[in-house]
Design a protein around this nucleic acid. Structure first.
Lengths: 138, 138
DNA sequence: GCATTTTACATAGCATGCTATTCAATAGGA
DNA sequence: TCCTATTGAATAGCATGCTATGTAAAATGC
């Protein structure tokens, strides 16, 4: 009845809605937040690097970045060495969102796991990570 | 870096792509399969019942059912007692897909969990279920 | 050097999922 | 009864994600 696949989908949807609610006051959407996490860690990455970092398809990243450019979260400028490459940089607005946005995500995660003890939280993360690894090879 | 929320999303995406590949030869999409699971168990449910069973928004279910009607998987007929209600019924085509589609889903789940032992598989499902429960109350 | 292949990104088209709104039918209360 | 509230479903509009394809720039092979 409640297979791993169904539960993964259900869990992910509930987490996305929860995070969306918390990020909305900041004018930020969940997928945008994931990109910002990458860029807060290292600004000025290329689109291809973000694709690897977040493991989404190139087309998905291109579209997300378009919306982020529209929302003045990032700029996209061609690299000098290679005109095919676009360098993605944080705007001032995006830099200011770091602390509140990370708090929103932290709160959502804490809420989701609030019925699990420390060890169970660790187990859940570990087990999901191992399933993801299995699915990624191939 | 790899929070529960990120992992849930990643896990769910990988499972959806895997299931999609396996269901494609049957002419079936993942969300359609979930609806069929409900109807194979009990045919002739209303849209509202399917919404409760799968815990998606009413609008999401309406759109999924439109695509399923288009693909000749279900019929939608108004109830006699209450003309607002639509009764959703399986077509012959959908009835025939039951065994191969459930095998596809079973195979995908087995693959995803193939690196975990019996106890770990059980733990993962239990822990996801508990997180889902927490997120649903409220 | 030039043709071919590869790479980086963009675009088209679609499925799934959400929120918000609308519409029609039914139920409930005065 | 009639007016209002509620209910069941459809629709609009959008974000996220996918596959498939197009385009331009760079790299490679002869």
């Amino acid at each position: 009845m409640h297979s791993a696949g169904y539960l993964a989908n259900h869990f992910a949807r509930l987490m996305a809605v929860g995070l969306q609610r918390r990020l909305k006051p900041l004018g930020l959407a969940p997928a945008q937040f994931m990109v910002l996490l990458e860029l807060w860690d290292r600004d000025g990455q290329t689109q291809a690097e973000l694709v690897v970092g977040l493991d989404v398809e190139q087309a998905t990243m291109a579209n997300t970045l378009s919306r982020m450019e529209r929302d003045e979260l990032v700029t996209r400028n061609p690299s000098d060495e290679d005109k095919r490459v676009k360098i993605i940089r944080l705007t001032e607005r995006a830099k200011k969102l770091r602390v509140p946005a990370q708090k929103a995500a932290y709160d959502q995660n804490m809420h989701a796991l609030s019925d699990l003890d420390e060890n169970e939280q660790f187990q859940l993360v570990q087990l999901m990570q191992r399933a993801v690894s299995t699915l990624k090879r191939r």
